[in-house]
Write a protein that binds this DNA or RNA. Structure first.
Length: 858
RNA sequence: GCCCGGAUGGCGAAACUGGCAGACGCAGCGGACUUAAAAUCCGCAGACCCGAAAGGGUUGUGGGGGUUCAAGUCCCCCUCCGGGCACCA
């Protein structure tokens, strides 16, 4: 850091962040090494502090400010604790808004995006966030997205990227396909009012389901992640163990209906088979039965309507008997086949066996239609009366009326019956997931081109990789990456991929035969970009690989990841998947991307999330202009604990600003004495300390202890900041004593030095200003974090509340460390206590040393 | 319906392992400084009641019960708010 900031001419009388903050920002910006980490060969312990990268909308919002203020405080603290800190930032820069902006303003997406990035980077610097800009990652640049393409090729080689025709979610507004994760209650995640349609398209997928079990099991060991996020991911993966059982259609043994059940032990109680209306057999049974066919069409329409309304659960259960029968392979019994509107075509097999006696929903359905109810599960313990139906208990229950399995426990029966099905060729144990493979194709322009071509002669890449359809699917040669997104392009509102209209892009040659070929015109889901960006930070300029493995081995896993809970499933599950794929590619050694995850609460104003439509948005720029960056970020930490929602109140920012002004006034006033003390460089005075000096040092060291603990534990920075305020209040109250010689210059130097260091993670600009003002060299956040001195922090006398029958009567003072007898004696000697217990019997005296005394009297 | 959070002054909140409820801050009120205001500094402040005051009493952490010398904190039941999942067989 250059010379001290002290200059009599420019030093303001009053706290003026508009003067202090840009000054230090300029100095920090001029020295890129300040925020840079040492290399992966550093002997220092590393700390990878990561905040979720923003979409470059062009403006920081308060949610960003909060997220980054938390991360920045932590990064600065860890620096001060001597760690080798990596604290990077980047831009999730592909995506639809750039195309919309292009349509609206006739600005090319790239230009619009890069301008937004420049604006936001400026804001971040103005906020004083300590990012190492040398490692900046921008996902829309070919230097980055070529590695998306590279990964795509690697995944294709391993069968993890594949093409299939499937029903896809289509947002008419975005004019593109959405992943399941992007459909919320039947609506587009970006367009709450737009109902998602289903279309049949051939799409690229990543086989995330191959990792379903590992993604699920890993959650159990991830104790650095919030339980809430882990639960959400567990639900999302939705693993369900069960059995597949083939029923045959009576008189048509070639027609099989495979049902999925988690309760195969109840199969002797099955009294019907229920098909989803979309089920192929439902359709084939309806052939020639117009009434049935019409019913089925009605149900499909109804399901669609409910899906669109986002209220699937509200439809009344309803079904229609096909008049046909299915044969239960366990007992040969024939049961009617129904088609029902509550059976989902896309879960399990789209067909179930209905066991009304032991399933609540089946019971309800059977009651409605008069389908028989057959009890086959009973409690193991001999109860005199049988439990009411439906009886769904598995534990301590056993089978009855179930042939050779009668008398077995449900658990045993499930295992044995699945094995029996397998042995007899009519079923098997299986696992189903709610998680589906990740559809990554998007019919959009502003994204990573998928590096595949379609050979017109039908060539295929290699043996064993069959063409899925006429026109061979051939991966682009790795050496020719990146497939560059063309810049000259006309963006229109019509459907289909815009890249299909660019002949220079579309027409290419087949990498195998050199013949004519056309490129894949879809681009990748932007969640691909954000699934691995944090690996790129460690080696952002690497032109030969996404990153060097030895660097990843040093820096990973991320020590602390911080972001919004809204990414609990999408981004965070894809990132975990990507990490496992990279591990299997031999690129990294870690199984999970982040050791610890923190999800901060939302920023609320007037009881609602800040949003343009509600008109309650507070602009960080306005806050900076009025109160400064320090006050803005410190308020974001002070107003609520970081994991809770934060209610933005501008008066509160003003309060923080006043507090900072107080600190500034006091520190400036005593800086001369502090500087002299440093310049003397002698050992601290051994003169006995005054009572007030002792008290100031005591509070200082208590505050150091508390804040140090807050950082390593609960992260309740609101109370950390409150503790600094208490310290400052104490200092202000001691002003007279400091002005006289009741407080030594050595103590003054120590107090203001400590205060400044404590403030450094929260209000970095002011802390830096005072650091220089107090005569210290260098960057304050590279100075050593103060050590709490337990001796100085110790209270000599403590207050003990004394209760009579649990009610507070008086607070007495006793020397710290007094034993039980002494405390009890002092309590009983107190005049007020004596008056209170006079004439009564003391039944019991409870003494909690250091805490309180409670006299139980009668 | 299931699973997580949460409910404490006028407001944001604190009380980490059961031990002085309301730290710290905002807003408010009173005072000092000022011709005045702003800024700053000092003080008051959960509610209710008694008292001229000093002080004293009662009550109080969404509601009801319980455990305990002692409950915002633990147990049981209930209400409301926020979030997630959901005809998942």
């Amino acid at each position: 850091m250059p010379e001290s900031a002290r200059n009599e001419n420019e030093r303001p009388e009053r706290y003026n962040p508009a003067q202090i903050e840009p000054k230090w920002q300029a100095r920090w910006d001029a020295d890129p090494a300040l925020y840079a980490a040492e290399g992966h060969d550093s002997t220092r312990k590393k700390f990878y502090c990561l905040e979720m990268l923003p979409y470059p909308s062009g403006k920081l919002h308060m949610g960003h400010v909060r997220n980054y203020s938390i991360g920045d405080a932590l990064a600065r603290f860890m620096w001060m604790r001597g760690f080798n800190v990596l604290h990077p930032m980047g831009w999730d820069a592909f995506g639809l808004p750039a195309e919309n902006a292009a349509l609206k303003n006739n600005t090319p997406p790239r230009e619009w995006t890069l301008a937004n990035i420049a604006a936001m980077r400026r804001q971040m610097r103005r906020m004083g966030f300590s990012y190492d800009w040398a490692t900046e990652v921008t996902t829309c640049l070919p230097e980055y997205y070529r590695w998306n393409q590279w990964f795509f090729l690697k995944m294709y080689e391993r069968g993890l990227a594949f093409r299939k025709k499937s029903k896809v979610n289509w947002c008419p507004e975005c004019q593109t396909v959405l992943a399941n994760e992007q459909v919320i209650d039947g609506r587009c995640w970006r367009h709450e009012d737009t109902i998602v349609e289903q279309r049949d398209l051939t799409q690229w997928f990543f086989r995330i389901t191959q990792y379903a079990d590992e993604l699920l099991d890993g959650l159990d060991t991830m104790d650095g992640w919030p339980e809430k996020v882990r639960t959400m991911q567990r639900n999302w993966i939705g693993r369900s163990e069960g059995t597949l059982v083939d029923f045959t259609v009576a008189n048509q043994p070639a027609e099989k209906i495979t049902v999925f059940t988690t309760r195969v032990d109840t199969i002797f109680g099955a009294t019907s088979v229920q098909l989803a209306p979309e089920h192929p057999i439902a359709r084939s049974l309806a052939a020639g039965d117009e009434k049935l066919a019409a019913e089925i069409e009605k149900m499909i329409a109804q399901q669609k309507a409910a899906r669109e309304a986002g209220d699937v659960g509200a439809i009344e259960k309803h079904g229609v008997d096909t008049g046909r029968f299915a044969v239960n392979p366990y007992n040969g019994e024939q049961v009617p086949i129904w088609v029902a509107n509550y059976i989902l075509a896309d879960y399990g097999t789209g067909a179930i066996m209905s066991v009304p006696a032991h399933d609540e929903r089946d019971f309800e359905f059977a009651q409605k239609y008069g389908i028989p109810v057959k009890r086959v599960i009973v409690p193991s313990s001999r109860a005199h009366t049988l439990p009411e139906l439906p009886y769904t208990v598995e534990e301590d229950s056993m089978l009855s009326g179930s042939g050779q399995w009668s008398g077995k426990t449900c658990d045993e029966a499930q295992r044995e019956m699945a094995a029996f099905a397998k042995a007899n060729g009519f079923g098997s144990a299986t696992v189903t997931y709610r998680l589906k493979d990740w559809g990554v194709s998007r019919q959009r322009y502003w994204g990573t081109p998928i590096p595949m071509v379609y050979c017109e002669r039908g060539h295929v890449a290699a043996e064993g990789v069959p063409a899925l359809e006429p026109g061979g699917v051939v991966p682009v040669a790795e050496s020719t990456l990146p497939v560059v997104l063309p810049e000259k392009i006309e963006i229109t509102q019509e459907g289909g991929s815009p890249l299909g209209k660019v002949p220079e892009f579309l027409n290419t040659t087949c990498p195998v035969c050199g013949g004519p070929a056309r490129r894949e015109t879809d681009t990748m889901d932007t969640f691909v970009d954000s699934s691995w960006y944090f690996y790129r930070y460690i080696d952002a300029k690497n032109g030969a690989a996404p990153f060097a493995s030895d660097k990843a081995k040093y820096w990973f896993p991320i020590d602390q990841y911080i972001g919004g809970v809204e990414h609990a499933i999408l981004h965070l599950i894809y990132s975990r998947f990507w990490t496992k794929v990279m591990r299997d590619l031999g690129m990294i050694a870690n199984n999970e991307p982040a050791a610890r995850l923190f999800t901060q609460g939302m920023v609320i104003k007037d009881g609602a999330k800040m949003s343009k439509s509600k008109g309650n948005v507070v602009s960080p720029d306005d806050m900076i202009a009025r109160y400064g960056a320090d006050a803005t970020r410190m308020y974001a930490l002070f107003a609520a604990p970081p994991d809770r929602d934060l209610d933005w109140q501008e008066d509160g920012v003003a309060g923080i600003s006043r507090f900072l002004a107080r600190v500034h006034r006091l520190a400036t006033k005593y800086s001369e004495r502090a500087r002299q003390e440093i310049n003397q460089s002698g050992s601290p005075s051994s003169a006995p300390r005054s009572v007030i000096e002792e008290k100031l040092l005591r509070v200082l060291h208590q505050t150091i202890a508390k804040i140090t603990e807050d950082f390593s534990g609960r992260w309740h920075f609101n109370t950390s900041i409150a503790a600094v305020m208490i310290l400052v209040n104490e200092v202000a109250a001691a002003e007279a004593a400091m002005d006289s010689q009741d407080v030594s210059s050595a103590a003054i130097a120590e107090i203001f030095r400590g205060l400044t260091l404590l403030l450094a993670p929260f209000a970095p600009f002011l802390a830096q200003e005072l650091w220089a003002e107090l005569g210290h060299e260098g960057a304050v956040f590279r100075a050593q974090w103060p050590e709490a001195n337990a001796d100085l922090a110790r209270e000599s006398e403590i207050e003990i509340p004394v209760q009579v029958n649990g009610k507070l009567v008086v607070v007495i003072k006793v020397p710290a460390g007094s034993d039980e007898a002494a405390v009890k004696g002092a309590a009983l000697a107190d005049a007020k206590i004596r008056a209170r217990i006079e004439g009564k019997t003391v039944v019991k005296v409870i003494v909690v040393p250091g805490k309180l005394v409670n006299l139980v009297v009668k």
